[in-house]
Design a protein around this nucleic acid. Structure first.
Length: 469
RNA sequence: CGGGGAGUGGCGCAGUCUGGUAGCGCACUCGGCUGGGGGCCGAGCGGUCGCAGGUUCAAAUCCUGUCUCCCCGACCA
């Protein structure tokens, strides 16, 4: 057995993560610290993530728009908590066109303020509500400790911004997005089981009255925030004067929400499913679902492989034929494994002689044979199986990493090792601060059944605690 | 900002202490042998040693200055 091209995840998880990104060709560091060059394979994954989330957002009734990258610095200052939260990580342009600007311009770290300013103009009557907008954009948050995909100074994301006539409408919509867009996408498409819940005051978005989160669990047993939805109350509506006339002609202040998910999702995918062999992609997100590998160019193997590839592609699957025989079989086998392609179909001399193909699942490593002419019909079921098995495995892993505990000290211990679950009433804000001193945070608060509570005051709430990325 | 390290072919590094023909692995190119899990042999391409100044017959190596990056601690999708 030759040495693995990547670090052992059990020995050095951070290095394993970097190795996977490099060897699978996902991304590289950009020339400026904290920036990221996303390579074709990584971007292909992001494009599929985008397409899926975008469809769900549209199904929830929001329309896409594009707002500017540059925001007047004064906008940020209009909402006190918002500036305070974002000031440390702002990139500010003070010189442009060779001249000092009279008012500095910030590179958007998020767009609540510009949206607020504009939406105030577009909302006049209760008939204009709800106003449901979304944009796909890049944002900049100057980070001290960047990590590819997980935390980069510039990242790509989607940010939704909505205006509603009542607190209840805004809350309901934010929750709807949380469930129908984020949770469903994460579970059904990325096969990542998530913990849903409310953020504590400590962890809440700057300017929000409530933040809801989807937390994933990585293979090194840390929590990773994968998507958030915020009820902004009337904080931004007041700051930007978003008002409307109601049915009786009385002027009312509106309620807003915002919600986002970023390129961090790619990091979540890597850390949620990857193994010692590299990346493992769930079939629904994999840019290439099936790789047909020609072992040797003999007896018309290449032509057979192409024919098989065409048949499978015609059935609607994303397939690539690897006829790059000069590279040697081992090299290519390892490469497809590193890239996490869910299903490999090998076509070698032995297969051809027997009129069969060799099937290899990336999720389990399981190898099997099937008649050549049957292969195309097996692909669909196999990919479905793999998708389901990956979700099941990840769920099992998460549950095994989770411990129910009864005291703050136990919660600290559990949170250091993996995920701890403790009654929120028992932990409380004091316990939360105690955990923070040792690098463990409350990832979210949830109901006993795992659903999102409507308020922190509900009885029997559970706090999920862990170390976080 | 505090503490620690590093700048040498595309990537990863040795050489620096003790100045004297710039090296190794990977990748790349060509040829051959191989071929069901990163295969082997041979031949090549490729570097003003971060930058500036100084010492010296001679500097990757010594001196001075300067810039940059990485790691560890305090913020974060």
């Amino acid at each position: 057995m030759p040495k693995s091209p990547i670090a052992d995840p059990n020995e050095d998880y951070p290095r394993w993560y970097q190795d996977v990104i490099a060897k699978a060709g996902l991304a590289e560091n950009g020339p400026v610290r904290g920036t990221m060059v996303i390579r074709p394979y990584g971007y292909a994954i992001w494009e599929r993530i985008q397409a899926d989330i975008d469809a769900r957002i549209k199904a929830a009734g929001a329309d896409n728009v594009y707002f500017p990258l540059f925001i007047p610095e004064s906008y940020l200052h209009r909402e006190a908590e918002h500036v305070e939260g974002f000031s440390p990580e702002l990139a500010v342009v003070t010189i442009a066109g060779g001249k000092e600007l009279t008012e500095p311009v910030v590179v958007r770290p998020t767009s609540e303020t510009v949206f607020g300013e504009q939406m105030a103009k577009w909302v006049n009557s209760y008939r204009d509500l709800p106003l449901l907008l979304n944009q796909w954009a890049n944002v900049v948050r100057w980070e001290m400790r960047p990590r590819l995909f997980l935390r980069t100074s510039e990242f790509l994301w989607q940010e939704g911004h909505t205006v509603h006539a009542s607190a209840a409408d805004a809350a309901a919509y934010a929750l709807r997005i949380h469930h129908d867009v984020y949770r469903d996408f994460l579970v059904d498409t990325l096969a990542l089981p998530v913990l849903l819940g409310r953020k504590t005051a400590e962890e809440r978005f700057a300017g929000a009255i409530n933040t809801m989160t989807c937390e994933g669990v990585t293979r090194d047993r840390k929590a990773l925030q994968l998507a958030t939805s915020h009820e902004l109350g009337q904080n931004f509506a007041r700051a930007f004067d978003i008002t409307y006339s109601d049915e009786r002609g009385e002027v009312q202040t509106a309620w807003t929400s915002s919600w986002g998910a970023s390129t961090r999702l790619v990091g979540g995918l890597i850390m949620g499913h990857g193994d010692a062999g590299g990346l493992r992609l769930p079939p629904r997100i994999a840019p290439t679902q099936v790789a047909i590998v020609v072992v040797r160019d003999e007896d018309g193997a290449v032509a057979k492989a192409r024919e098989l590839g065409d048949t499978i592609a015609a059935a609607g699957f994303r397939v690539k034929v690897d006829a790059d025989v000069h590279a040697g079989f081992g090299r290519r086998a390892v490469d497809w494994e590193l890239k996490g392609v869910p299903l490999r179909i090998d076509l070698g001399p032995r297969d051809l002689a027997a009129g069969q193909v060799t099937l290899l699942r990336r999720d389990s490593g399981e190898k099997s044979q099937a008649p050549l002419d049957r292969a195309p019909h097996l692909v669909g079921d196999l990919l479905d199986d793999i998708q389901a098995a990956m979700l099941a495995e990840a769920t099992e892993f998460r549950d095994a990493a989770t411990a129910d505990v009864g005291s703050v000290e136990e919660a600290l211990e559990a949170g250091r090792e993996g995920v701890g679950r403790i009654e929120w009433a028992r932990l409380g804000p004091e316990g939360e601060r105690r955990l923070l001193d040792d690098g463990v945070s409350v990832r979210c608060i949830q109901r006993p059944d795992g659903s999102v509570p409507a308020s922190e005051e509900e009885p029997d709430l559970q706090a999920i605690v862990a170390r976080a990325y």
